[in-house]
């Protein structure tokens, strides 16, 4: 007797449309076997093997926020922050960082009414995407990672394109509008500025640049 009663082949339909066929006569099992059914799925989804369309997994890339001591890399009295990112899943990390065009300002002014000194001569803020980092952040043993998470790779691509877009656009401000402001700005642009806590002693964090 055929254990799978139903259609003319002895198969019963399942709720999602595929039917069951009986095992070959003389088989050990009394159960029926599912026929493979391939669904035509819309873009961004795929067949889960049961004829159902499920959303594709979004490729995930690692994003990390780090800092190291400014001026003296091993001393974190005042810090310089940056990002480590994976451009594609499992790829080597790139460092996204920023700094002044020139290491020494020519003049330091303190105009009346301004709460902070004004530095003239640092030049523009230079931003960089590189394996080593402008300040060897990739190999500095004093580097501290304060936040790390997997994020969609498109978001990492946005962090990289924002970094490139900010290169040479704004004046470097010293204790404000600096590398910490750069990190805050690119995180803000991808909606991560609230998720990431401000690294310790990073003046300029919270200052936003307008990304061109």
């Amino acid at each position: 007797m055929n254990p799978c009663q139903g259609d003319e082949n002895g198969c019963s339909p399942t709720p999602w449309g595929n039917d069951f066929v009986p095992l070959a006569p003389g088989g050990a099992s009394l159960f029926c076997q599912a026929l493979p059914v391939v669904a035509v799925c819309p873009a961004g989804t795929h067949d889960d093997g049961n004829g159902r369309c499920v959303a594709n997994a979004v490729p995930q890339c690692r994003v990390e926020v780090g800092y190291q001591g400014a001026i003296i890399p091993s001393q974190s009295a005042v810090n310089h922050s940056y990002l480590y990112v994976q451009p594609s899943p499992g790829s080597p990390f790139e460092v996204l960082d920023a700094g002044p065009q020139r290491a020494i300002p020519y003049v330091i002014l303190r105009p009346r009414g301004l709460p902070r000194p004004m530095y003239v001569g640092f030049g523009k803020m230079v931003t960089d995407v590189s394996a080593q980092g402008m300040y060897q952040e990739a190999t500095n043993p004093a580097s501290t990672v304060t936040w790390a998470q997997y994020e969609p790779c498109w978001l990492v691509a946005k962090l990289i394109s924002d970094t490139e877009a900010l290169n040479g656009v704004y004046d470097y401000g010293g204790l404000s509008y600096n590398s910490n402001s750069f990190v805050y700005t690119v995180l803000w642009d991808v909606g991560l500025s609230n998720a990431v806590h401000q690294p310790a002693r990073t003046p300029g964090w919270g200052d936003l640049f307008l990304i061109p």
């Binding site: 400014a70 890399p73 290491a103 590189s130 080593q132 402008m134 300040y135 590398s179 003046p203």
Partner: peptide
């Protein structure tokens, strides 16, 4: 990409 600076600013 050919060099690194040894001391960073904030």
């Amino acid at each position: 990409g050919s060099l690194v600076l040894l001391h960073a600013y904030p």
